[in-house]
Simulated assay, not measured.
Amino acid sequence: ERRRSIVEHPFGNLKQWLFGNGRFLLRQLEGAKAEMALAVTAYNFKRAISVLGAKKMMQLMD
């Protein structure tokens, strides 16, 4: 139950935020994997910026 509440919220956000209707734009497993990897990376960057701030993220990326 705890895992579900932790994992489902980000996944639901990804589906709504990036995919709109919840479908992958690319077909086949490789395309879906690539699309999901990009979506998760973007989500993680967005979360990190909201926690650390843009200036700190840019300092860490140097």
Rank of each mutant, 00 (worst) to 15 (best):
R2S: 12
T41D: 03
L52H: 11
G12Y: 03
F45L: 13
F19R: 07
Q28D: 14
G53V: 01
E1A: 14
V51R: 13
G20F: 02
R3T: 06
A32L: 09
Q16A: 13
G20P: 01
R3K: 13
L29Q: 13
A37W: 04
L60W: 07
F19G: 06
Q16H: 11
E35R: 01
F11C: 08
E35F: 02
R4A: 12
L25N: 11
N13Y: 09
G22V: 03
Q28K: 13
N21P: 00
L52E: 01
R4V: 02
F45D: 07
L25V: 11
M61A: 15
V40Y: 00
G31F: 00
H9T: 11
K56C: 01
G20Y: 04
N13I: 08
F24Y: 09
L60T: 08
A54T: 03
R23A: 10
A32V: 13
M36K: 05
L29V: 10
E1Q: 11
L60Q: 08
M36D: 00
K56E: 05
Y43A: 06
G12D: 07
N21E: 14
Q16W: 07
F24M: 00
R3Y: 15
K56W: 00
R23Q: 14
A48L: 10
R47G: 02
N13E: 14
A54C: 10
R4K: 14
M36W: 05
N21F: 04
A34F: 03
V51D: 02
Q28S: 14
L14P: 03
R3I: 05
V7A: 13
H9L: 11
F19L: 15
L26A: 10
A48V: 01
K55S: 13
L38N: 07
V7E: 15
K55Y: 03
N13P: 02
S5F: 13
G22T: 03
L18P: 01
M36N: 02
S5D: 14
Q59N: 11
